[in-house]
Computed example of a mutant assay.
Amino acid sequence: MRQGAVGHIRLVERAGQTLVEKRMTDAARHDTELLALTAVADVDLPTPTIVEASAGSILMTRVPGERLDSLNGDERLAGLSASGSLLRRLHTMVPPPDGLPTAPDDALIVRRYRDAGGPRLPFMTPPAEHPVFCHGDWTDANLLATGGVITGIVDWERAHVGDPMRELSRAAWAASRKDPRSVDRLVTAYGADPQRVKEWFPIHAAELWLWFSEAGPPEFLTELTAQLENWSHM
């Protein structure tokens, strides 16, 4: 069994087929994942198919491929590029299902970050885009790939209705912490304006800093704090 940030995942054998069971104690996240996976079931996106669901548990098909964050630099960059068009497809072709949560409260994130004493960041309010269906955690840990092709998009428990540039920016900023080339690869593949994407970066930095300050580990917070103190040089 593999434990994630908000749940447990294990492989289950049933009728000669290997399935994935995801258990979550947070009912809201469970319901969101179930709602999101149902909404994308008939869309041309490589997502798991729900086999069975009960309180706190979702049994789904196992999608092929390796986690993108486990691949070497060039393979990972190829996968990120491939994921850009898929993220745009989600944003432009899939209507948000009724009942999907709203986007994170960015004003609250900034206020909490400042109250907690985080390093100074150049916060601004980017122009609002029409809200769309967002995955919520589009990172290389939740993308599976084989040979540069994305074969699986998993972990939909943070799906919400939100700004597409915010979501693209979050993915790009997170990926850039491993390889600065990731931003251009992902943003170009999506077809967005890099400057508009980068306007969101301070929000995502603050959000991650708050996560590390509350959930640890301490060494991650120390490393990120040092990086944010040198923001102008990043």
Rank of each mutant, 00 (worst) to 15 (best):
A107T: 04
A78K: 13
R88V: 03
T125H: 10
G117I: 09
P97F: 00
G118E: 07
R120P: 07
P122N: 09
L90G: 09
D98M: 11
P97N: 02
A78Q: 09
A107G: 12
G84W: 12
D115R: 15
T92W: 06
D105G: 04
T125A: 13
L108T: 12
L77P: 14
L77E: 00
G79E: 07
L87P: 06
M93D: 14
H91K: 11
I109E: 02
R89K: 13
G99P: 09
L87T: 05
L100K: 11
D98V: 14
D106E: 13
S83T: 05
D98E: 15
S81L: 05
G84P: 12
V110I: 15
S85I: 11
I109D: 02
G117Y: 08
D106C: 12
P97W: 00
A116K: 12
R114K: 14
L108R: 15
R114A: 12
D105A: 01
D105W: 03
P96K: 04
A103R: 10
R112V: 01
L77C: 01
G118W: 09
V94H: 10
G84A: 13
R112G: 04
V110Y: 07
T102D: 12
P95M: 01
R114I: 10
S85M: 08
T125I: 08
R111G: 03
A103V: 02
L90C: 10
G117D: 02
